[in-house]
Design a protein around this nucleic acid. Structure first.
Length: 458
RNA sequence: GGCGUGGUAGCCAAGUGGUAAGGCAGGGGUCUGCAAAACCCCUAUGCGCGGGUUCGAUUCCCGCUCACGCCUCCA
């Protein structure tokens, strides 16, 4: 029985899909205006593991992730500039080119850490669903949830009685906060833009006609419009990062539920942050690392994935280089274990592994089950089969290594053979020379009980 | 001010009302020309602090403290 922690109820709940055997999940995707940080990546890895775990448990999963290529504003809430247009201006490129460039970058990063990237319709772009977003705003307008200011159409949060139910914060409590509100035309600080007008006399690169005037959709409305269009409402699981709980997801709920009069999603799952030096890592904090930074330091992207798997998704992960190194060492060990196994035909999965996943996606526990399996008394074939199955969830690239001894170049192999003979003749000088020769070709030779073992230099 | 999360060995990190998974690092041993690997063994009487409940708490309750996050764009 799969149990998941539902942010909406703040409790562990048994997962029951709307349609038997099927799961519809929606994940808030990147805003394509700068490179992904490893913090962003942690959340996407969590969603990918969720997707894979659901499949292992027998569900047919539809995983939709949007690409925000318009409408995400920087700075003071609804008053700032559009992130994509701003990045474009800075780079001297068009907004469309910027969006395309950063989308290609994140797809590359996803691929490098073995995240299966949603594609086609399952990766909708906000700019391709302008019609749906306008429709949604019109529905809200008809139902009386909107009002107009000089710069756009806004959602009136005071009209939605349940506003704040996800974060457990009432409107009045938010109001008491120390935030500075710069948009004095809004009725309430929590109100948010559904449609923004293009600035007077200014031509935006991304703008569309609408019943209210030329402009562009607000950030929150895209998710509501696209999830309804692609998954229906309600759908099963909505995920994202914890920082979205109190604003973005709250706003999505308000829009969607106000417009359609039914729940948006049944389960809300949120991935915790990755911290650096015990503090939040963020694009605006200036302490953000990218996957390329890790690679530049000689790390394998999958070592980062392993690192993430070692912490429960609802716990903060304090990123350190030492921790990443430990993860990489562990991954190397797993790889060499995998190579030493044989391809088996079994479809067994250790129950401890499955139970760990069913327990709110407890990947650290699942990883422990992997190690226990490797240390167990099962045969190489059984272990090979089990590791292969478990790797469909882990995504550590172990499955393809099972039963695949390293491909050793002939010349290296010949040197190793020659060294073996030298050793038998107790010609240690020659033996050491040959070890050096092998090393110069990028391989490490190690003696074993009945011969030697060659591994590529890290 | 409001809402929320967490403090477990050198590091990372699970977990439980009955005496602490796993990984990394470290130590000892076997082995070895050397080295490494491999294998075996060891490494928290202890789970932020103080109370309480209990036969018994790291696990439940209360208080405190520290750290972090959200409430303003950010996974």
């Amino acid at each position: 029985m799969l149990k998941l922690w539902n942010t909406a109820t703040r409790s562990l709940e048994e997962f029951k899909p709307i349609k038997k055997g099927k799961v519809g999940m929606y994940a808030c995707g990147p805003t394509v205006y700068n490179p992904l940080t490893i913090g962003n990546l942690r959340t996407y890895i969590f969603e990918d593991v969720l997707h894979r775990a659901l499949e292992l448990l027998g569900y047919n999963v539809r995983h939709v992730m949007n690409v925000t290529d318009v409408g995400h504003l920087v700075g003071d809430g609804d008053m700032g500039e559009d992130k994509v247009e701003m990045a474009a201006a800075k780079a001297g490129k068009s907004a469309w080119d910027i969006a395309k460039m950063y989308e290609e970058m994140f797809v590359k990063d996803f691929t490098r850490v073995n995240i299966r990237v949603p594609s086609g319709k399952d990766r909708p772009h906000a700019t391709d669903y302008i019609r749906e977003q306008i429709d949604l705003v019109q529905t809200l307008e008809k139902k009386g949830f909107t009002y107009r200011t000089s710069d756009g159409i806004y959602f009136d949060t005071s009209k939605f009685a349940e506003y704040g139910k996800l974060s457990g914060q009432k409107l009045e409590e938010k109001e008491a906060g120390a935030r500075v509100e710069v948009n004095e035309e809004k009725y309430h600080p929590a109100d948010f833009a559904l449609w923004k007008f293009s600035p007077e006399g200014e031509k935006r690169q991304m703008e569309w006609e609408s019943p209210w005037g030329v402009g562009f959709p607000g950030w929150h409305v895209e998710c509501s419009a696209m999830s309804e269009k692609l998954l229906g409402q309600p759908f099963d699981i909505h995920c994202g990062g914890v920082d979205h709980i109190s604003v973005h997801h709250e706003n999505e709920i308000a829009q969607s539920e106000a417009a359609f009069g039914k729940p948006l999603a049944n389960y809300w799952l949120h991935g915790e942050f990755l911290l650096v030096d015990g503090k939040r890592m963020g694009k605006s904090e200036g302490n953000a690392y990218t996957l390329d930074d890790l690679i530049a330091k000689g790390f394998d992207p999958l070592a980062f994935r392993y690192y993430c798997l070692g912490t429960h998704y609802r716990s903060k992960l304090n990123f350190t280089w030492e921790g990443l190194e430990g993860a990489q060492n562990a991954l190397h060990k797993l790889r060499s274990e995998a190579r030493s196994l044989s391809v088996g035909t079994g479809t067994e999965i250790p129950s401890a592994f499955v139970e760990a996943l069913e327990d709110d996606l407890n990947t650290p526990k699942a990883l422990a089950a992997v190690w226990d399996t490797l240390k167990s008394g099962s045969t190489r074939e059984e272990k090979g089969a089990m590791l292969t199955r478990m790797d469909t969830v882990l995504g550590l690239g172990l499955a393809e290594l099972v039963g695949q001894p390293l491909d050793i170049p002939g010349d290296v192999k010949a040197l190793a053979e020659e060294r073996l003979i030298a050793r038998q003749e107790k010609n240690w000088k020659r033996s050491d020379e040959l070890r050096e020769a092998i090393k110069s070709k990028g391989w490490i030779v190690e003696d074993t009980k009945d011969g030697y073992e060659l591994t590529p230099e890290a």
